[in-house]
């Protein structure tokens, strides 16, 4: 017979309600949100709030690291701790935060320029290192903040004609992630916030580096990859897909590419066995107790 502990259920409901409110509010007043009306990044913000609510996290638990660009501003709108550093450095700061304190929910939030151009070195090696960090790339194919220059993912779905050194074709971040050893690779679309939130929840639960390539349209500078264009081209990962299999992940990408479709959902997810670490001692804890005498013996 199943016994239901009523008191606990009530408490959980209460906690859930208070958290809903926490995440409902932004950290800044509405007029200070400086995204263009209709910007895809609103969808990511909404999706993240849903995911954090669902996971019962509080603002002091989370540590988002924002990149440079429109997308990085999300760190200020989301109600929680945040670090905003230099262009391309997002994942490396996140790595340090995570190594220092495994109790924090570390989320890297950056654009395609930040992650795949100036920060691609960090992207590749973060896939290898596999820290428990969730990366949401708000991918729109352009450098919006600097008025629309091409990013490494520019040209998605377009006939580019003749290529040149100045304007090469786009590359596929999902394939790069798989090649570099990422343990969680997913794709979402800002135009489908509910689905994106589901993907974020899975990513935040993943015990390693979770990469989500989120199509987040730039309504001002990318007039080709619009919401309508994405709606025509996205397609959910089929239910039978086995995300634990690397082979299936590659086949899925190839198969979707042949059909000119963009897979939405979890393409690959296979945790790696990993060593666990305690949080490192922090300021305010007694660091005076270090006894270096045993270390000195090797110099005798």
């Amino acid at each position: 017979m199943k016994v239901i502990d009523v008191s606990q259920t009530v408490m959980q409901v209460e906690k859930q309600t208070s958290i809903d409110k926490i995440w409902e509010e932004n950290a800044v007043p509405k007029h200070r949100i400086q995204w263009c009306p209709g910007c895809g990044d609103f969808g990511v913000l909404a999706g993240l709030k849903m995911a954090l609510t669902r996971l019962g996290r509080e603002p002091h638990d989370i540590f988002p690291v924002g990149g440079i660009g429109c997308s990085g501003q999300i760190r200020n709108y989301l109600n929680g701790n945040a670090l905003h550093g230099t262009h391309g450095g997002t994942l490396a700061y996140a790595l340090g935060v995570r190594m220092a304190n495994p109790d924090l929910v570390v989320i890297a939030l950056a654009g395609d320029g930040d992650t795949f151009a100036i920060g691609v070195e960090n992207f590749v090696h973060t896939c290898r290192r596999d820290p428990q960090v969730t990366l949401v790339v708000m991918n729109n194919g352009v450098y919006g903040l600097t008025k629309g220059q091409n990013s490494p993912t520019h040209g998605l779905g377009r006939d580019l004609g003749e290529s040149s050194e100045e304007s090469p074709p786009p590359f596929d971040p999902l394939r790069l992630a798989l090649s570099a050893g990422a343990t969680f690779v997913a794709q979402s679309f800002s135009g489908d916030v509910k689905h994106a939130a589901q993907v974020y929840v899975a990513a935040l639960k993943h015990p390693g580096f979770a990469f989500i390539n989120d199509f987040s349209p730039c309504v001002t500078y990318n007039k080709f990859n619009t919401y309508d264009w994405f709606k025509e081209h996205v397609e959910h990962v089929p239910e039978g897909h086995d995300p634990m299999s690397l082979g299936s992940a590659w086949s899925l990408l190839n198969e979707f590419e042949v059909r000119g479709r963009l897979p939405m959902g979890i393409i690959y997810s296979k945790p790696r066995p990993k060593r666990r670490f305690a949080p490192l001692p922090v300021r305010g804890e007694n660091l005076n107790n270090a006894d270096i005498r045993p270390l000195l013996q090797m110099f005798r």
Partner: peptide
């Protein structure tokens, strides 16, 4: 950058 992240986390 990692050292700054750790420093930010209080280490």
């Amino acid at each position: 950058r990692a050292a700054l992240g750790a420093g930010m986390a209080g280490v």
